[in-house]
Amino acid sequence: MTIEIAPEARKQAVTSIMRYFEENMEECIGNIAASGLLGFFLEEVGPLVYNQAVADVQERLQQRVSELDLEVHEDEFQYWRKRQRPIK
């Protein structure tokens, strides 16, 4: 599965990569090189991050599903118990 990001997000990511190189490396990186580096990371490392996010969501959903019976449980056959008159 190819990880795609929206054009505006890609533009912001490329700008961020260029800024990172400018502030933290001894050389600047151009727009085309930054775009290529982003593409590499999306293809090489992106699936790792994506798969971990999916696993995290699956775990959370499984927790919620296991708690569902506690949240929506209703006792059966309560009609007569609710209508019993107190004995005097």
Rank of each mutant, 00 (worst) to 15 (best):
A33G: 06
N31H: 02
E44I: 00
E67W: 06
L68I: 09
R83M: 04
E76P: 02
E8L: 13
G46W: 11
Q84E: 14
E59Y: 05
E44K: 01
A33W: 04
E71S: 14
V57H: 03
Q12R: 11
Y50N: 11
C28F: 12
K82F: 06
R85A: 10
P47G: 03
D56P: 03
A55V: 11
E71P: 05
L68M: 11
D56G: 05
V54W: 05
Q62V: 08
V72Q: 08
E74T: 15
R64K: 12
E43N: 11
E59F: 06
M18F: 00
A33Q: 13
E26R: 06
L37P: 02
K82I: 04
A6Y: 09
E74C: 05
A6Q: 12
R83H: 08
S35W: 03
Q62D: 14
F77N: 10
N31M: 03
E44Y: 01
K11T: 12
H73T: 03
Q84A: 15
E23M: 00
G46L: 10
E27W: 01
S16G: 06
E8Q: 14
Y79W: 11
L61K: 08
E74N: 07
A53H: 07
T2Q: 14
R64F: 10
G30M: 00
A53I: 07
V45W: 02
Q62E: 13
E67M: 14
R81T: 02
S66I: 04
E27F: 02
L38A: 07
Q78M: 10
N51G: 10
G36W: 02
Q58N: 07
V14Y: 05
Y50Q: 12
L38F: 03
V54I: 15
R85S: 14
N51L: 09
G36A: 08
H73V: 00
V49R: 09
P86K: 05
V49G: 05
Q63V: 13
W80K: 13
F40E: 10
A9V: 05
H73R: 07
Y50T: 10
E4P: 04
Y50K: 13
S66A: 14
P7D: 10
E8V: 15
L70K: 12
N24S: 01
S16V: 03
D56R: 07
T15C: 04
I17S: 01
A9Q: 09
L68Q: 10
M25P: 03
Q58C: 01
M1I: 10
P47M: 02
W80F: 14
E74A: 06
A9E: 08
F21R: 01
D56H: 05
E59R: 05
L38D: 07
K88A: 15
E43R: 12
R19Q: 14
S35L: 02
A6M: 10
G46F: 09
A33M: 12
E23C: 01
G39R: 08
G39P: 07
F41L: 04
E4N: 10
E4K: 13
K82R: 12
A55P: 11
I17T: 02
M1A: 14
